[in-house]
Design a binder for these strands. Structure first.
Lengths: 134, 134
DNA sequence: CTCGTATATCGACAGACGTCAATATTCTTG
DNA sequence: CAAGAATATTGACGTCTGTCGATATACGAG
């Protein structure tokens, strides 16, 4: 798998071409974005955020989504593995709640690592101070 | 404000069950996140942001990514359709550049529509003013 | 301990996705 | 107009993903 730059770097002639963010980091960011790339998972985040104490258990989510319980568990697992949710088991029930900084962190990491940040500052002159972005 | 309701509101008996953000909106958000859910596409964004004038043409991207030209075009199309890139054809070359507010807009929309915003404010007390989030 | 409930895991399957080779399209140049 | 170059599109193929039914696991009640 060649992809991107980053080579061993100890090489005598490292390609002078602009090296981008290393593949590992790109994969990490992409994996987290992918976890958000499903309508039902977005709906789950919304349901949890809107729930009592900003948490919700599986049984409360399977019906609004119209999905089977295994499927809901599956999606919750993906969101949890991606770092967007935490699971707390109280009795027989499993309560999922949102990890506070996860989403903003993802966005800001992409901006920072990819050099998108400078882009944005330039654009900020146009539509500045419109939305605090989270 | 529980937000995310939206219903027609004119209905006499809107289902009192907690309705989340409407499926259309969830699908829209998810589609945009999905566009970011691939390592090579993240790398493309980075490459473009790091390019001269914050733009890049296809021929400059196929080699750093180690992908074929059709595949790169495919990924660029996905990012463009999702609203993250714009395409400008100068002569035979196609220059792609980043749409300024697209990423922050996506993040803030998710926060707003899903009621995640209130969650974040609560959490902001803890790790406030750390990262401006884009 | 046994039973019922809530959740997680497994196996299977249709559909979507990433990738490439081949081809079509568009544009510059002679 | 013809030739060549850059990019987009098409078709095909293997892999991944979302979904379900069936089953396993964990826990409270009796």
């Amino acid at each position: 798998m060649s992809t991107l730059i980053h080579e061993s770097a100890a090489e005598c002639c490292t390609t002078p071409t602009s090296s981008t963010l290393d593949p590992e980091r790109a994969a990490d960011l992409a994996a987290r974005f992918k976890a958000l790339g499903d309508p039902n998972r977005i709906a789950l985040l919304s349901l949890i955020a809107a729930g009592e104490n900003a948490e919700a258990c599986v049984c409360d989510m399977t019906e609004p989504l119209g999905l089977g319980q295994p499927t809901v568990s599956h999606h919750l697992r993906i969101l949890t593995d991606a770092g967007f949710l935490t699971r707390e088991k109280r009795g027989t029930w499993a309560y999922y709640s949102i990890v506070p900084g996860a989403l903003e962190s993802l966005c800001s990491e992409l901006c920072a690592d990819s050099g998108l940040g400078s882009m944005l500052q330039a654009s900020r002159t146009v539509k500045d101070a419109q939305e605090p972005c989270c």
